[in-house]
Amino acid sequence: MTNLFLLQLLNGLQFGVLLFLIAAGLTLVFGIMDFVNLAHGVIYMVGAYLVVTFAAMTGSYGLGLLLTLPATLAVGLVLEFLVFRHLYDRSHLDQVLATFGLVMIISEAVEIIWGAAPLTVPIPQILSGSVPLLGPLRYPVFRLAIIAAGLLTALGLWFVISRTRIGMQLRAGASNRAMLSALGIDVRRLFTMIFAFGAMLAGFAGAMVAPILAVDPGMGESVLILAFVVIVIGGIGSIKGAFAGALIVGIVDTVGRIFGPIALKAVMDPAAAAQAGRVLAPMLVYILMAVILALRPAGLFGQRT
């Protein structure tokens, strides 16, 4: 039981890291540019589709991944130029409306280009298989790769934002755009850069999960809400918060849905516990978010505005 609990904890961590990978680009754009980008999920989806195509073309997942990064960066640049650039000084609601439109456009375009049937990309040989953990329990190698990718992303972001000149400009831009621009920094170019980088992060996340998840036209939508939950729990704009939020959501969701019913059985009869567990499991993440926001209205690491 303890072993299983530890393993589930690891699974929760792994799911959390996966969520962080998806949420990282979102919190960057949202936090620094104060821009609500509902299209983040579909860019993630485009990343997954591109890696499928590129991997098929080159015959290698690794090469496909390398090609996907500049491709999604380019997608980000084009979208920024055509749409987002004109919305930086607009209300959140206008941003919601326009990016909602983009979600419809891109989802449909993906369906036209790649079809509605789910696609896949095989796991590269060196990362396939599983390693023994405890007794009969094994752990897939590729999941370890995802954990590594997520941790590296987190570390990289933290380093860029808190330790480099660009990061300093980003932080300055987040707190006072006009001042930064008065200091002679091209804010517009800075924002273009952040945005394209955010899109690339989304594409990277999509490409990383393509081997373990179904690549289908609904995949962007299913993670969008979860990604928002993660960054809101953590506090918008805080990379640290997004990381903590992702891990909390991952662990609560994973451990809660397995051990929740067991815990409930201790306080009520088994049938009722199973029933209650079934009703509560899908709500768990939302209950968590409501509780955290009720206690800390600006998330765990957010600043009250």
Binding site: F30, V36, H92, I225, F228, V229, V232, I236, V279, P282, M283, Y286, I287, M289, A290, L293, A294, P297, A298, G299, G302, T305
Partner: peptide
């Protein structure tokens, strides 16, 4: 409960409650 928050946090907490009702 939701009115303790504002802005995007309000958007998300109302979503959370609606999702609970949905499930």
């Amino acid at each position: 409960i939701s009115l303790r928050t504002r802005g995007v946090y309000f958007i998300m907490i109302t979503l959370a409650f609606a999702q609970m009702a949905y499930f």
